[in-house]
């Protein structure tokens, strides 16, 4: 995030789940910034805390969740100090979110038109007619054919790709400064995914919005991100601009992820894998959380939790031995 003005700034975010077996920590001490007009990808496997981090920003965490943060600020305004009412006014206006499964995030009982104009009218004092015109405009923006007739349709009449376009239209309805997209293309077919990614890029430029893009797919990351944050077991383990990250992944987990991703332009007989499985939140390993799966783990890794330290200029890595590991060139 070289010279960009910062839009979202998260400092020391900790998220806990209250369960029958006591309090378990899902996100540990996460801090990062997103610049204006920047697309930041948040990457990690299931259970790494990437979704819950984004829900914490939106103030949409489930009831059994405790969010503690030193600060979460959006465009200079402190979100942690806000009352639910104030936060609600920001949601859908300053910050909006799209989800993985567009069918479950649209209400099946209301028409597309109703759901779209509702979002517009909640935040703007305009007539139904004006709202409807804006809705048509938005559907055109997201390249939906026959927008007037789609407004009268219910979500079930639309394909997955079309529904995701509608979700994007709803999210962009009030020109938000921050769009959080949680695996927005995971449920879509690959040709539709390509269409949606392109659309998001275009809209981002047009509205000069920032995007926090949550995904597990390194291909998608390489395709669209400016900067990448890699999470593992509730912590950020690496942060870098997209080119540096792919050229030289520093953390053994990032390296493992890249090596186990199939590259279509080369053929390997055997894929590299990361041994073992993601640890359970309630029984985190001591020391570095990645050490039981790390091929380079040493004695000190078992005992000392590494800090997320600034290295090589604009990068961050959480590893005691990153310098010695070198980080193979990707490819």
């Amino acid at each position: 995030m070289e010279n960009r003005e910062s839009l979202l700034k998260i400092e020391n975010l900790n998220v806990y789940f209250k369960t029958e077996n006591g309090r378990i920590q899902a996100v540990k001490d996460v801090s990062f910034e997103i610049g204006k007009g920047e697309l930041v990808a948040l990457v990690g496997e299931s259970g790494c805390g990437k979704s819950i981090t984004s829900l914490s920003v939106m103030g949409l965490t489930p009831k059994n969740c405790q969010v503690e943060a030193k600060s979460i600020s959006l465009g200079g305004r402190e979100l942690t100090a806000m009352k639910p009412d104030e936060l609600r006014k920001l949601r859908g206006k300053e910050m909006a979110m799209i989800f993985q499964e567009p069918l479950t995030s649209l209400n099946p009982l209301f028409t597309i038109g109703y759901q779209l104009t509702e979002t517009i009218r909640i935040h703007n004092q305009i007539s139904k007619k004006e709202a409807r015109d804006r809705a048509v405009e938005l559907l055109k923006k997201v390249e939906i054919p026959r927008p007037e007739s789609i407004l009268k349709e219910y979500p079930n009449a639309l394909s997955g790709g079309m529904r995701q376009r509608v979700m994007i239209a709803i999210a962009m309805a009030n020109n938000p400064t921050l769009l959080i997209a949680d695996e927005p293309t995971t449920a879509l077919d690959v040709t539709i995914q390509a269409q949606i990614l392109r659309l998001m890029r275009q809209l981002m430029k047009e509205y000069s919005a920032s995007i926090l893009f949550i995904t597990h797919d390194l291909g998608v990351v390489a395709e669209i991100a400016d900067r990448v944050i890699v999470m593992y077991a509730g912590q950020i383990v690496e942060q870098a601009d997209v080119f540096s990250l792919f050229h030289r992944p520093l953390h053994p987990y990032t390296q493992g992820l890249m090596n186990s991703t199939i590259k279509i332009n080369q053929s390997d007989e055997v894929l590299d894998t990361i041994n073992g499985v993601v640890p359970n939140l309630s029984s985190m390993p001591e020391g570095c959380r990645f050490h039981p799966r790390c091929p380079y783990a040493r004695e000190d890794c078992r005992k000392t939790m590494p800090e997320l330290s600034a290295v090589l200029g604009n990068r961050y890595v959480r590893c005691l031995h990153w310098e010695e590991l070198g980080g193979d060139q990707n490819g």
């Binding site: 690959v190 040709t191 995914q193 390509a194 269409q195 990614l197 392109r198 890029r201 797919d217 390194l218 291909g219 998608v220 990351v221 390489a222 395709e223 991100a225 997209v242 080119f243 792919f246 890249m258 991703t261 590259k263 279509i264 332009n265 990707n330 490819g331």
Partner: peptide
């Protein structure tokens, strides 16, 4: 349409033929 895990091969948005 397959996104390649290498930002250097990022397909130029304009030149790319998307179905």
């Amino acid at each position: 349409a397959i996104p390649l895990p290498d930002p250097d091969l990022r397909k130029q948005e304009e030149s790319r033929d998307i179905l």
